[in-house]
Structure formats: structure tokens, C-alpha cells
Amino acid sequence: MSTPMQTHTIHLLAKKEVAKNVFELRFSKPESFDFTPGQFVQFLIPSEEKKTPRSYSLSSLPSDAYLEFCIKFLDGGLASEHFRTMNIGTDIECRGPLGRFVVDENNDDHYFVATGVGLAPILGMIRSLIEEKKDDHPIRLLFGVREEDDLFWIDRLETLKQKHSLFDYTVTLSQPQPTGGWQGLKGRVTEHLLQHLGKQRFYLCGNAAMVKDVRTLLIEHGVDTTDIHFEIF
């Protein structure tokens, strides 16, 4: 592992909008950079005469030749505006890796719950289980967004499903467009969480309200707090 808070200079390789105001960014990977899926880095965003840290989780694997992030651009946001205008090849400093939101080494089944760009670290964790660890335990993902325009990386989830017969995922929209023709599940993730509840280790990532509600619901249904890991975006 890299020394915590070690500073690296990386440059932008690719930038692609994958959903409404959601961008996939790939940066060069320093030779000395190693991390565990689920961890994050702090980008040092230039602002006036100082550099302001902003944290983003990695969605790539240590074996990938690049560092990948999935970022929701917010109008007026310091990092959002910087990345929005950032040109391919431009350098930026970052620190890390940081964080303890990683998959436990155990023999439990895995249940991941993500909303929005909370899918970023979770995708890396799932990829690691399937592609690197060759995990033979069931892996389930419940992914929620507001509407059709907010969906992204479904093609990646389909590819992972084809690779691993024990992986399955469910997508739900909390506010689908009336004329959008959405045929999948509707409602918040809490409305569908209990359908596949069993003896599992849970990993939650998304906004604070979702994490709180899902954690409360799991505890109410007998899940031990030590089996619930979470990261708030």
C-alpha cells in the first residue's frame, strides 16, 4: 500500500459523460500507486492561492492501467467546475489512497446497496471479488437512481453478470419519468431491500439519508451492526 497522504501528480486521460451531469474520469496511474478497491483519493483543487482537497472514490482496480472516478458535476462546485473545464493531458495533484470502506476477507455472501455515484467504489469492490479474488459466494447489488437519465454503467453490470453466475443486480428508480416507459422496479432502495435478505455482509454507499434508512432497516430485521459497512457521499 502507498503511504497515507502521499502526494502524486497525475494527468487526465479521458472524460466522458455517462449520465445526466455524471462524468467518468480516467487519470494516469503513478507507478508506485497501490490501493484496495473501495478506497478514495483527495484531489488538490487549485483555487486562488491555495489548493483545496476534495475526496473521490476509485472505481478502477489496482490491476487497471489507469485510475478511474465517477463524479457528479454540481453547478458552482469547486471541484466540479475545475474538472468540467479540465483538458485532456492536464496535470493535477492528489493524495492517497485513503479510507477503510473495503470488502472484509470472510466467507459471507455480499450485498451491496448504492445510489447515484455511490456505485463508483462499489463497482470496484464487485469487480475485485469477481475478477481478482474469484469469489464463490453470491454477490448482490441493489442500485437506485431518481430517473432514467441518471442511469449509468448498466452495460458494465451486465458484463459482470455474464462473468459470474452468482452475481445479480437490481435497479430501481425512485421517480421515473411518466412518459419514459420504464419497465423495471420503482421506488427507493429501502422498498426492495428485504426481498433478498439473508446471511450477508452489507456494503452501503450513497447519500446520508439512504445510508441511515437502509442501516436502520437492516438492524430492525436482525442484521448485526458489525455486518454493515458504509460510506456516505
Rank of each mutant, 00 (worst) to 15 (best):
V102L: 08
A114F: 04
V117H: 07
K186F: 06
V171N: 00
W153V: 07
G181V: 13
D136R: 08
E158C: 04
D135H: 04
Q162N: 13
S165L: 08
F152G: 06
G116L: 03
G181Q: 12
Y169C: 10
E131P: 01
L185V: 06
T90G: 11
D109N: 15
V171R: 03
K186D: 12
V117Q: 06
T90M: 15
G180P: 10
Q175L: 02
L123A: 09
I154P: 07
F101I: 00
W182P: 15
G181C: 11
D168C: 11
L141T: 00
N106F: 00
G124S: 04
Q175I: 01
T90R: 14
L166I: 08
D168Q: 10
V102H: 05
L119C: 10
I154S: 05
N106P: 06
P138Q: 01
L166S: 15
D155S: 14
H110Q: 11
V189F: 13
L141W: 01
G116V: 05
P178T: 07
E105G: 07
T159P: 04
V117I: 12
G116M: 04
G99N: 10
W182D: 14
W182S: 13
D155R: 06
H110W: 09
G144M: 08
E132M: 03
P138V: 00
Q162D: 11
N106V: 01
W182G: 14
T90I: 05
D109H: 09
L166V: 09
P121Q: 08
G144A: 14
F152T: 06
K133C: 07
T115R: 01
Y111G: 05
K186L: 06
E105I: 05
W153Q: 14
D155G: 14
D109Y: 01
G124F: 00
P176G: 05
T115Y: 03
E158T: 10
L123D: 05
L123Y: 09
A114L: 03
F143D: 11
W182A: 12
R188A: 12
R140Y: 07
L123Q: 12
R188C: 11
L98W: 00
C94I: 04
T170Q: 12
F167D: 12
G181K: 12
Q162Y: 02
E147Y: 09
I130D: 04
F143P: 13
I130N: 01
L123V: 07
K133I: 12
V103P: 07
L173V: 03
L129E: 12
G124H: 01
R100M: 06
D108C: 11
M125C: 13
G187C: 00
W153A: 15
L119T: 11
G124A: 01
K186N: 15
L123F: 08
I126Y: 08
D149H: 07
L185Y: 13
L141F: 03
F112W: 02
F152N: 02
K186I: 15
Q175H: 08
E93D: 15
H137S: 03
G116C: 02
Q175G: 00
V103K: 00
D168W: 06
Q177G: 08
I126D: 11
A120K: 07
G180R: 06
D91C: 04
L166Q: 15
F112T: 03
H164K: 14
K163V: 04
